[in-house]
C-alpha cells in the first residue's frame, strides 16, 4: 500500500492565531483515515489546507509524489482531491442536477461525466428521484448525499469529508457512514474529519487525534477506540 497523501510539519494561521502547529500525517492508498478531536482542535483547518482553501505558512503537502501546498484550489481539484465542505454548502437555489453538473466543472470528458452521473444516481437513488428539485428543498440527509455526490462528480482519488454527520439523525448517520465505507470499497481513498468519534473509528483503518492544533495520538482505529484516554475524552466513557 503506497502513500497517497503525506503532510509534513505544516503550520497554518488565521491572521495572528496559530491554528495548526506542526501537523504531520499520512494517508495510504485505499485507506479510510479519520481525524478526530474536539471543537476547535484544527480538524477542519487541516482539511481546508489540503484542499487549498487555506495556505500553510510552512511545511509540505505531497499528493501522489507531487507538492501541492500553496496551489490554488482548482489545481488541487484537478490533481484528484475533492472536498465535501463542512455544513454541506450545496447550491441551494439550483436543482440537484445543476449541483452535480458543477461538481464536474473541471472535467472536459463528457462521456466520463455521464458515466459518473449514472454511478452517483445508483449510489444515491433519492438524488435521481429529485434531480429537478431545488437543492435547498431537500432534507438534511439528502443534502449531505448531494454534497457527497457532487464531490464524486470530479472523480477524485482522494475524498475529503468534513463532518458528514453534522446535524443528522442517528439513523441517517449510520446510512451516510455505510455509504462512505462503500465509496471507499470501490476505490476512493477517504480522509474523514468527525466529531462523532465513535462512528468515525468504526469505519476507519487508522486515526489521528487532534488537540489544539497538534496531533496527540495516532494509530490503528480499533486500538484507539479501545484505548482508555480516547474513550474518556471523545467516546463518552
Amino acid at each position: 500500500m503506497g502513500t497517497m497523501l503525506k503532510i509534513d510539519n505544516i503550520n497554518v494561521y488565521y491572521g495572528a492565531i496559530h491554528a495548526i502547529k506542526g501537523i504531520s500525517l499520512e494517508v495510504g492508498e485505499g485507506e479510510i483515515v479519520t481525524l478526530i478531536g474536539a471543537n476547535g482542535a484544527g480538524k477542519s483547518t487541516t482539511l481546508r489546507t489540503i484542499s487549498g482553501l487555506l495556505k500553510p505558512k510552512s511545511g509540505t503537502i505531497t499528493f501522489e509524489g507531487k507538492e501541492i501546498a500553496g496551489l490554488a484550489a482548482q489545481d488541487i481539484v484537478k490533481a484528484g482531491i475533492s472536498q465535501v465542505p463542512e455544513g454541506r454548502r450545496i447550491f441551494a437555489n439550483m436543482t440537484v442536477m445543476e449541483n452535480l453538473d458543477l461538481g464536474a466543472f473541471i472535467r472536459k470528458d463528457k462521456e466520463g461525466v455521464q458515466k459518473d452521473l449514472k454511478n452517483v444516481f445508483e449510489r444515491f437513488p433519492r438524488l435521481e428521484e429529485r434531480k429537478n428539485q431545488e437543492a435547498g428543498t431537500l432534507s438534511g440527509g439528502e443534502q449531505q448525499m448531494l454534497a457527497m455526490g457532487r464531490a464524486l462528480m470530479s472523480r477524485p482519488r482522494l475524498l475529503l469529508l468534513d463532518e458528514p454527520s453534522m446535524g443528522l439523525a442517528p439513523l441517517l448517520i449510520r446510512e451516510i457512514f455505510s455509504i462512505i465505507a462503500d465509496i471507499n470499497k470501490t476505490g476512493t481513498t477517504v480522509l474523514l474529519v468527525e466529531q462523532n468519534a465513535n462512528m468515525a473509528l468504526s469505519i476507519a483503518s487508522r486515526a489521528y487525534v487532534l488537540e489544539t492544533g497538534r496531533i496527540t495520538l495516532s494509530g490503528d482505529a480499533e486500538k484507539l477506540a479501545a484505548s482508555e484516554d480516547v474513550r474518556k475524552a471523545y467516546l463518552g466513557g
Binding site: V77, K78, F91, A92, F105, R150
Partner: peptide, 13 residues
C-alpha cells in the same frame, strides 16, 4: 453567488 466556498471547492477559479 450561491456559495463561494463550495464553488472554490468544486475547482471553480
Amino acid at each position: 453567488r450561491e456559495n463561494e466556498i463550495a464553488a472554490e471547492a468544486m475547482g471553480i477559479n
